[in-house]
Design a protein around this nucleic acid. Sequence first.
DNA 1: TTAATATATACGTTGACATGTATATACGTT
DNA 2: AACGTATATACATGTCAACGTATATATTAA
Lengths: 111, 111
Amino acid sequence: MNTSAMQLTLLTIAEPNRFNIVELLKKGPRSVSDIVQALNIGQPQVSRHLRIMSDAGLVYVERKAQQRIYSLEAQPFQELDAWFDSFSRLWEDRLDKLDDLLSEIKREEQE
Amino acid sequence: MNTSAMQLTLLTIAEPNRFNIVELLKKGPRSVSDIVQALNIGQPQVSRHLRIMSDAGLVYVERKAQQRIYSLEAQPFQELDAWFDSFSRLWEDRLDKLDDLLSEIKREEQE
DNA sequence: TTAATATATACGTTGACATGTATATACGTT
DNA sequence: AACGTATATACATGTCAACGTATATATTAA
């Protein structure tokens, strides 16, 4: 599990505007001006955020005349998805412990 | 889906030291001095990071004499887990499109 | 070539946050 | 009570990153 790549992804999408860009791009590819319109931030800021996301490997670009169409890269999100899956032990273990506790109580009642 | 809560969680665990604290606490509860030893940062810094994580609802504390034992809260990680699951469409759709493409090619070959 | 549209970059300013040092608080032991 | 250990907080400092404004680059159209 490549934690430093995940940290970069986390750091990148933790910024509120970029988080919103991710939410938007999840619905499908969008041009810069699409994003400017959808979220309420200036064009240079959007370009800058997209640059940062691109550097982090979270998006890729396609040219269409003067427009740049941005899409989400799947891999980094898959990685984080897998990482968060590994947390499931956190709550499953608790349920197991609860089960153990309940069994123990039952046993005590029967004695 | 509570995006503002998720953003807070992301922002909190994106910081490298706190990310490492999460990785450590995933293995089980730890005292402050445990964490100080495991990661290589000063005690006040660890306390401060734990304070921030606590404010964000990511950890809870139990007292044991002078020690404070920190554990991960399950819920915020469950939320992010669910959110990242929603990205699966991202790559599944692509596979679907690939399937479509392959079917089309086959059809063309048969004509 | 000139103009128009779409996007990217440069730069100065500002605010937020992480760090280190010092100190306060909490709890236990003698 | 006095001391030691464990943890939390206060404060000054430095760094980084986001923002706004201005401008550069790219692409198409006239």
